[in-house]
């Protein structure tokens, strides 16, 4: 197999219109043909195709380049423009093997970081605020999620240019310095503080209606006194029931029960405690 890395003599500078075409294709359609076998591979090939057509004029060269970019590929969709940008910069130099390596090298770590920030921090905070607005009957809830999605998309544009300009320098930045670790940890801490506030606020409707009547003697007279269990609980720790239920769910998941099993257990618990009049 002829190594394309050896033919670095010709550098093709890609015009801005073609770069943008590739970028928008990645931003909007990367996952349209997502499949189990090679996941986002075809989406990536279609994005980079206009660039490959400019760089590789000969049919065989082009075919080989296309085959390279139809290999397994999967990452967080927000991170993909970054990888695409870096790959294009390398393809301009006809450094095809390097483009493949940078894809393989970056897609895993960037998927991890992107998924963490999206699934553990950004989406949950937006989703909980939106859900509490919606529970109050406000359309601003769904609107907030809608806008957050657009914001999340908008991030992809600068990431593409960052990838294109930094090219191979990206690998060092992602792997070294621990910069991204820092971002993830900061996100985790902020996320935990917010979740700590969300648990009592979202689950505040979980209270017990239980009460006991007790006869006490006041000044020699028998008086009927009603003790509300919820008030007693609030005296110990407020929002104790929400905390206990989240704690139960967390314990069950840590015991390796599937989310669907935990869901069924919580539904069963709801039916039982409701029937017994506990909750």
């Amino acid at each position: 197999m002829p190594s394309t890395d050896m033919e670095k003599t010709t550098k093709t500078k890609i015009d801005k219109a073609t770069l943008k075409k590739a970028m928008w294709r990645d931003i909007f359609t990367l996952q349209w043909s997502w499949n189990y076998e090679r996941m986002q591979a075809l989406g990536f090939l279609w994005a980079i195709l206009p660039v490959l057509q400019k760089v590789y004029k000969k049919g065989e060269e082009l075919k080989e380049a296309m085959q390279r970019h139809l290999q397994f590929y999967n990452t967080n969709p927000v991170a993909s423009p970054l990888i695409l940008g870096a790959s294009i910069a390398l393809e301009e130099d006809k450094a095809g093997q390097a483009a493949s390596s940078i894809k393989v090298g970056l897609m895993g770590p960037l998927a991890g970081i992107g998924d963490t920030i999206q699934a553990v921090l950004f989406r949950p905070i937006i989703a909980v605020i939106a859900a509490s607005l919606a529970m109050g009957g406000s359309m601003s809830g769904p609107l907030l999620i809608f806008l957050a999605g657009i914001l999340w998309m908008a991030v992809k544009v600068p990431l593409f240019w960052l990838g294109y300009n930094k090219s191979t320098g990206l690998i060092g930045e992602v792997a070294g310095k621990g910069l991204l670790d820092k971002v993830t940890n900061t996100a985790t801490i902020a996320g935990l503080i917010v979740i700590g506030g969300f648990i009592p606020s979202i689950l505040s409707r979980l209270t017990t209606p239980l009460q006991f009547a007790r006869t006490v003697t006041v000044d020699g007279e028998a008086v009927e006194k009603v003790i509300k269990v919820q008030e007693v609980l609030d005296g110990i720790v407020p929002f104790l029931i929400p905390v206990l239920i989240v704690g139960l769910g967390y314990y069950l998941i840590k015991r390796k029960l599937s989310p669907i099993k935990v869901l069924l257990i919580l539904v069963a618990l709801s039916f039982i405690t409701n029937a017994l009049g506990i909750l």
Binding site: A131, I199, I202, V246, G249, L252, L263, S270
Partner: peptide
């Protein structure tokens, strides 16, 4: 009312 607890867990 209980199931949001699953999301948090």
């Amino acid at each position: 009312k209980v199931l949001p607890a699953l999301g948090f867990a």
